[in-house]
Design a binder for these strands. Sequence first.
DNA 1: GGGTAATGTGGAA
DNA 2: TCCACCTTACCCA
Length: 252
Amino acid sequence: VAAGGRVGGVPEGHLIHHHARRHRAGLVGAERISSPQRRFPAHRVTGRLVDVDAHGKHLAHRWSDGAVVHVHLGKQGVLLDGPSPPPEPMPQVRMRVEGPALYTDLIAPMVCEVLDEDGWEAVRATLGPDPLREDADVDRVLAALVATSSPIGVALMDQAILAGVGNALRADVLNLVDVHPATPSDRLDEGRRRRLWDELVALMRTAAEAGAIPHTVYRQERCPRCGTPVQTGDVGGRTAYWCPLHQPPPDA
DNA sequence: GGGTAATGTGGAA
DNA sequence: TCCACCTTACCCA
């Protein structure tokens, strides 16, 4: 278990998986759960933390009493992992779990709720395959991408098509495969769709390992491959970033 | 030290 | 369609 601290600022799938791995290694076995902020009903969770699961941007802590604590960081949520024993918690800590090697503080999440296994399955049922999960059904994702004429930049962030991609990942992976974010999804040929998936898996694996993304165009000045100034624009209500040379806009 | 924009999603209007 | 959530990083003074 790495020494504690803050990890990467962008709560997309890679970050959730990064925390899930750390929690599996250092937090399983924990018997202490609390809510310094008092907004989370920690008294409804008893026993030991037995397993940690992640799907897309969703995290689940399984406890020995059958409780499954479901967490979604939303836009501003933060998980602070650190070596046990923890310091006095900040008053805004929604949930603290203290394990043998590691503790984690959850701050400002969009979701932190007590479910059971069925409830967690219901959450997972709303999500498409996750590139970071071994059980990801690639063909289902590729079929869904053919079936929509939405911009690929929108389809990639649709959590029902595939789970875990946010604004940063979509910008970087589309740059890696030379596709403009406004390109209609159903206009990508099969080879390009497959390459998109493969690059996404590789990028997310690297990012989950490090806890951060090596950005190519997301919030960057220039395309790292050609030095051309990165262009920005609205795609699906979010700021998209692309290299005008490598990612020319689709024909109108 | 302050102001601003940013990561995602659900719920209200 | 807009707002809430309420942290962090980055810009400027």
